[in-house]
Design a protein around this nucleic acid. Structure first.
Length: 437
RNA sequence: GGAAGCGUGGCAGAGCGGCCGAAUGCACUCGCCUUGAAAGCGAGCGUGGGGCAACCCACCGGGGGUUCAAAUCCCUCCGCUUCCGCCA
């Protein structure tokens, strides 16, 4: 199949499904906007634009129908009759042109504003900002080391696992080289994630890191957080911040067969983030960097199954966290801290001894139909009718996990015990010891 | 980077200004036939939007243009294929 994704018209028509819920239940959209701390005035504005758009389409349809039936008469007519018909047809043609211009303009205006609308929030999501999350549970007790812990950077440097200076020399701040056992640790961790994903029925994928603008926009990353994204100006492409993006685009503009259950993918990719606006935050080590690697779970499913799938994704993340034996808590992210595309989001945060706090290791979002609608991903229901699918994603492992592993399993002499489950993936090593010893 | 060609429904593949939302084959669904199946026969079978409905409108890679009228002609962008060059 020849495939060209750039199909604004189709995208537009797929968007038209959501306006229906907007019309039928504007109050729900207003409430969600309020919960997110977003402008709820857009709802009325959208309704106005929508009705203008709809009447413009109706008017154009009517004129086009007239034009069509008149056009059928022309080849049969002759002489004076034909001349007359041609004259009317010409006049009608001009009218159609005007009507179509109005249709396009009003549709575009509507679509543009509509695209800025974030996903509806889940009714149980706690209302508020970044700090207003609710803690769903704690697993394990904060690690008690009995000596003054070294932070992950100190540990890594001791182990010869990282080279920050040369990272900065080659690429600038927030770049690094994983060296020796650091590289080994990362590969082992990600391989362990892939192994688990395979066990759980996921299809492993290695995805493109550069994507087209439509794909980036379709996943919701060009909205409020577009400053976070690297853009290739000369080629009009974007570096992805997660394989969620190419995996969401993977089935763009397709009608999926979900009769045998959800489609589950585990994407392995490097992730790129500008970290604009985080100056001075987490400047030490590899907690917040411009490039890291990640294995991400991504699921296409029916909207009615999405919430249950979200729980499953959280379960798989916890299964993975158990393997590295670190204490963590699970939080339900507050409405103001959800991404544009998320309906609900759970984060797992691991205890970091030197920071004496929990830091995010995984994040799973239920995007419901938000991304699928923008990317036109559908499935057939029992009646064979295409419906918009739901998408979800969740982290299985990232470079940052190394921080939690090292800090929680460090020994007094700066060596680090390797969690048992990870050992087969790092050449059977049980303890990592500082170099030069 | 240069040259040529191509892009039509789930797939294959006709159509190359009006009778085309689009022949035909395969696949698929339903029915008949059969002890069952295959074969055969009959019917159906793209997507989006509007309407209670009959039905109407849009879509032949995207966008624009010519024309009363475009899958069909022109421009442009994207993608694919082949050849040459270049780099691995």
């Amino acid at each position: 199949m020849r495939y060209e994704f750039r199909t604004p018209r189709r995208l537009l028509s797929s968007l038209v499904i959501d306006p229906r819920t907007l019309r039928e239940d504007p109050e729900a959209v207003r409430a969600s906007q309020r919960a997110r701390g977003e402008d709820e005035g857009v709802v009325d504005k959208l309704l106005g634009l929508d009705s203008r758009r709809r009447s413009a389409i109706a008017a154009a349809d009517k004129l086009r129908a007239e034009q069509k039936s008149l056009g059928k008469l022309i080849p049969k007519a002759s002489g004076e009759e034909k001349a007359g018909l041609l004259a009317t047809a010409k006049d009608l043609s001009a009218q159609v042109k005007t009507a179509e211009a109005e249709q396009n303009e009003s549709s575009e205006e509507f679509e543009q504003l509509f695209r800025t609308l974030p996903n509806l929030v889940h009714p149980s999501s706690p209302i508020g900002g970044e700090d207003d999350f609710s803690v769903l549970k704690h697993v394990g007790e904060p690690t008690k080391l009995g000596f003054t812990p070294r932070d992950h950077l100190e540990l890594m440097e001791g182990l010869g696992a990282v080279d920050m200076e040369r990272g900065a020399k080659v690429s600038g701040s927030r770049f690094y080289f994983l060296t020796g056992v650091g590289a080994q640790l990362q590969l082992g961790l990600l391989n362990m994630a892939i192994a688990q994903a395979l066990e759980n029925g996921f299809v492993p994928m290695i995805t493109p890191s550069l994507v087209r603008p439509e794909i980036m926009a379709g996943t919701g990353f060009l909205g409020a957080h577009s400053a976070e994204v690297y853009r290739m100006r000369d080629d009009d492409m974007y570096l992805v911040g997660t394989s969620e993006v190419p995996l969401a685009g993977y089935h763009a503009d397709e009608i999926l067969d979900l009769n045998d259950g959800a489609k589950r993918y585990a994407g392995w990719s490097s992730c790129y983030r500008r970290e604009a606006g985080s100056y001075g935050k987490d400047t030490r080590g590899i907690i917040r960097v411009h490039q890291f690697d990640k294995v991400e779970m991504f699921v296409y499913t029916r909207p009615e199954d999405a919430e249950a799938e979200h729980e499953r994704l959280l379960g798989w993340e916890e299964q993975m966290l158990a393997k590295i034996e670190v204490p963590y808590r699970v939080i339900d992210t507050a409405t103001g801290d959800l991404g544009t595309s998320a309906h609900r989001k759970f984060d797992c945060e691991a205890w970091i001894p030197t920071q004496e706090t929990y830091r995010e290791l995984t994040s799973t979002s239920n995007c419901t139909t938000f991304q699928a609608r923008r990317l036109s991903v559908r499935y057939r229901d029992e009646n064979g009718k295409p419906q918009i699918a739901a998408t979800l994603n969740g982290t299985l492992a990232t470079t940052r996990w190394i921080v939690a592993i090292l800090e929680n399993h460090q020994l007094e002499d700066g060596s680090v015990r390797v969690p048992e489950a990870l050992r087969p993936f790092v050449g059977g090593r049980e303890v990592l010891t500082p170099i030069g010893r």
